[in-house]
Write a protein that binds this DNA or RNA. Structure first.
Lengths: 194, 194
DNA sequence: TACATAAAAATGAATGTTCATTCTTTTTTT
DNA sequence: AAAAAAAGAATGAACATTCATTTTTATGTA
């Protein structure tokens, strides 16, 4: 098992360097040589862990996306009432976007760009199922508007990406009070009135 | 006036080619040679109209952003009541994102990427003022929640970008009914209840 | 434990390509 | 016929990837 012997630390350093450089310079301005340098590794070593640059970026995307959803659902279980469950997941996602800012920025960039292969993109979406199930339950109980999952995501979750990016640009700070306001807006947009 | 003599058509073709190629391949995979080919122009000619590749992309961004806001406010005037004015602007923006899909996709990509210089980005934001003024009026009249402009934009406008991208990926179609639902979600998220 | 050796991992330097940009010449416009 | 615009080919740098070698690790033997 050659693969298992290779240092997992090196692989992680490569993934981390990719995220950091792509965040700061964009995909078009992150050469393999810089990734190698930041990970303290020779350029040739990258090819022991990844097929090529595209593969490195794809795998990085899928891994970060998996971390994201893992974090989002870590404290959730399916027996929770709809509103409480949504609040919990929403807060975990907000938390992730604020605390794991580098990771979240990377995902935001990948999600609006033809930088990632379609296959990896689909792979990344898979783990969102618990949220979709919660919404289905909410619709059935008449708590959540009978809208497409895409619309619900667009209004309840995606605005957090915009806010995170805006905060990263420095023009705006997302404090505790803003977060509660954001939650209220998110919930207002998808709950059934009265 | 050398500049005025140069063909405006050629310039437009270059801008259009840039948008199309960046949308489909990403900035990292759109060489100047391809842009030239798509615009039916020699690579050298690009440099008669733009300083370099970065300048071409920056200028393209600023121009498309200007078109976007021009379209958004074309039928609005400041004497309208807040809710009607918001509905009007929202619909124009939705229209732009659906009809001028190429332009809107390009903006979405630029807005989540370090592809554009900070200066051009700031230049692009300027023209949004009428919407910010409308929101200020709405807050004063107690119609719109007393939230930061960034939060209002995140919930009322930005979801349209997500929906447009999702539609472009083909998994979801944004029809008339969806649009009305989206509007209701947008308005719900920022209006003061009762 | 100490050493020898084979396998694996890692490296720096090379390779060949692609690309942004510039140069020189040609074509078009005035 | 002069000036401006456009062109295609040339230039040199940057880059992804591979190659030939060296270093590290694991294993077997005394």
């Amino acid at each position: 098992m050659a693969k298992l012997q290779k240092s997992i630390d090196k692989r992680n350093a490569l993934v981390k360097a990719t995220i950091e450089l792509v965040n700061n310079n964009g995909f078009h301005a992150t050469p393999m040589s810089k990734i190698a340098k930041m990970a303290n590794v020779s350029p040739a070593t990258i090819y022991l862990y990844f097929e090529n640059k595209q593969d490195l970026v794809n795998k990085t995307y899928v891994e970060v996306k998996a971390e994201y959803t893992k974090y989002a659902f870590a404290t959730y279980n399916e027996t929770m009432p709809v509103e409480a469950g949504f609040r919990l997941i929403w807060n975990r996602i907000a938390d992730f976007k604020l605390k794991e800012c580098e990771n979240a920025m990377f995902l935001a960039q990948c999600d609006n760009t033809p930088m990632i292969d379609e296959l990896s993109r689909q792979e990344g979406i898979k783990h969102l199922q618990p949220l979709l199930d919660l919404w289905e339950r909410g619709r059935q109980e008449g708590i959540i508007k009978p809208l497409s999952d895409y619309l619900l995501y667009a209004y309840a979750i995606n605005p957090l990406s915009f806010l995170m990016i805006t905060q990263k640009r420095g023009v705006f700070t997302l404090d505790k009070a803003h977060l509660e306001e954001a939650y209220q807006s998110a919930w207002s947009s998808i709950k059934v009135c009265q």
